[in-house]
């Protein structure tokens, strides 16, 4: 299962801006509520996090050392 942005429904005000900027169709609007679909094509652009005014969407990065 691909890792997806973290969505906190309690913080979501249903504005839908994240849905309008999502490039891969992972975010959809259902009855004034945002839902996340598991898609392989999510490139972690973080635009959904950028436009979310309530902090309902988070795109955290794991910080790791290169193995090489």
């Amino acid at each position: 299962m691909p890792v997806m942005p973290i969505f906190d429904q309690a913080k979501c005000d249903g504005c839908g801006l994240c849905v309008t900027v999502c490039r891969c169709g992972a975010l959809v609007m259902t009855e004034k509520m945002v839902a996340i679909i598991q898609v392989d094509s999510c490139g972690w652009c973080t635009d959904c996090e950028l436009v979310c005014a309530t902090g309902a969407l988070q795109c955290p990065f794991e910080i790791v050392m290169s193995e090489g």
Partner: peptide, 12 residues
């Protein structure tokens, strides 16, 4: 390098 949900430190 910025990877999908990962930041890889290449030159510590």
């Amino acid at each position: 390098s910025l990877e999908r949900h990962r930041i890889v430190i290449k030159n510590k």
